[in-house]
Amino acid sequence: TSEVNPQMLQDLQAAGFDEDMVIQALQKTNNRSIEAAIEFISKM
């Protein structure tokens, strides 16, 4: 599995997102940004 940015993971979990969804979103967006991860999650 590709690495996820631990700070982004922590921030998104703090915002109430599920850890598994956050990890998948960060991997799919290559840790580009929190906004990109949220957009990915919203389309899941």
Rank of each mutant, 00 (worst) to 15 (best):
I38E: 13
A14G: 08
E19T: 14
L12S: 02
Q10P: 00
A25K: 01
I34N: 10
M21C: 10
Q10M: 10
I23M: 12
A37D: 04
R32E: 15
K28Y: 13
E35W: 03
K28E: 14
K28D: 07
M44R: 12
K28R: 12
V4K: 04
M8Q: 03
K28V: 09
E3F: 08
A37T: 05
G16L: 00
T29G: 03
V4G: 05
S2W: 09
V22M: 01
Q27D: 09
Q24R: 11
T29C: 05
I41V: 04
E3Q: 10
E3W: 10
A37Q: 04
F17S: 03
S42W: 10
N30I: 05
S2D: 11
D11R: 10
E39G: 08
A36Y: 02
V22F: 01
K28L: 05
I23N: 11
M21Q: 15
R32H: 14
A36R: 04
D18K: 10
I38P: 09
D20T: 12
L9G: 03
N30R: 11
N5E: 04
D18G: 09
A14Q: 10
G16I: 00
A14H: 02
Q10S: 11
M8S: 03
E39C: 05
A36T: 07
S33K: 03
D20S: 12
V22A: 15
K43E: 15
Q10T: 08
A14E: 14
N31L: 01
G16H: 06
K43D: 13
F17V: 03
N5P: 02
K28P: 01
F17N: 10
S2K: 14
A36D: 11
M21I: 15
Q13G: 05
I23G: 06
G16M: 00
D11T: 12
S2E: 13
N30W: 00
E3K: 12
S2H: 09
Q24T: 13
E35M: 06
N5G: 01
S33Y: 01
N30S: 11
L26A: 03
S33L: 00
E35P: 09
S42M: 11
D11S: 13
A14M: 09
V4A: 08
F17C: 03
I34H: 11
Q13T: 13
G16W: 00
V22D: 03
E35T: 09
N5Y: 00
M21E: 14
T1M: 11
A14P: 00
R32M: 11
N31M: 03
S33H: 00
I38C: 10
T1V: 09
K28I: 04
S33W: 00
A15M: 15
K28C: 10
A14Y: 05
A37G: 05
M21R: 06
I34R: 13
A25Q: 01
A36S: 11
N5C: 07
A37C: 05
Q27S: 11
S2I: 13
A15S: 06
P6A: 14
Q10C: 07
L12Q: 02
A15L: 13
R32Q: 15
Q10R: 14
G16P: 01
S33G: 10
Q13V: 15
N31E: 07
L26M: 02
I34E: 11
G16F: 00
R32D: 07
V22H: 02
A15D: 05
I41L: 12
N30L: 00
R32T: 13
M8T: 04
I38G: 09
Q13H: 04
Q13E: 08
Q13F: 03
Q13C: 14
T1G: 14
M21D: 14
A14S: 12
E35L: 03
I34K: 14
L9E: 06
Q13R: 15
F17P: 02
K43Q: 15
E35C: 03
Q24A: 12
T1C: 11
S2Y: 07
S2C: 09
M8G: 02
F17K: 01
I41R: 05
N30T: 03
N30C: 07
E39D: 10
Q27W: 02
A15Q: 14
T1K: 13
I41T: 07
I23A: 10
M21L: 14
S42K: 15
A37P: 04
T1S: 14
T1L: 06
E39K: 10
N31R: 00
I23S: 08
N5H: 08
K43A: 14
V4R: 03
M44T: 12
D11M: 09
E35V: 04
I34F: 08
L26H: 11
Q24P: 06
F17A: 04
D11W: 07
N31G: 09
N30H: 08
